[in-house]
């Protein structure tokens, strides 16, 4: 029973802080996936573009969030209603955008 409650609360937290940002920012994540593929190709063919790709992966989430905020997108209020501040949302977008590169770096090293 306690286990069930634990997994239920983990599910809620996960939904709150990861899943909905993921869906909310799916266009961004499609874009960053292309950047990840480019990053892998750069590493495979020893092209010197990796730093530029990493910079883009960091800058894109911030630009994406600012655009959503400027358009006063209603779904942003969904996240606000869950108590997520602008900083938390941007932080999660950054994490979701760069985590694959961090994992790749770890594997490659």
């Amino acid at each position: 029973m306690n286990e069930l409650l634990f997994f239920e609360s983990v599910d809620i937290i996960f939904m709150r802080y990861i899943t909905y940002v993921f869906f909310y920012a799916k266009e961004l994540l499609i874009l960053t996936s292309f950047l990840t593929v480019s990053y892998v190709l750069c590493n495979l063919f020893s092209l010197p573009l990796a730093p530029l790709i990493i910079t883009m992966k960091i800058v894109l989430p911030v630009v994406f969030f600012i655009m959503k905020k400027m358009n006063n997108q209603s779904t942003l209020y969904f996240l606000y209603n869950l108590g997520m501040s602008d900083g938390v949302i941007v932080g999660l977008l950054l994490l979701l955008s760069t985590i694959d590169i961090l994992v790749l770096q770890f594997i490659l090293s």
Binding site: S74, T75, Y77, N81, G83
Partner: peptide, 19 residues
């Protein structure tokens, strides 16, 4: 909204389509 005591209903639909 960061204090967790308020909920706001905006003018337009705000719950994401996929939910």
């Amino acid at each position: 909204y960061t204090v967790g005591i308020v909920k706001y209903l905006p003018q337009h639909n705000f719950i994401p389509d996929f939910m």
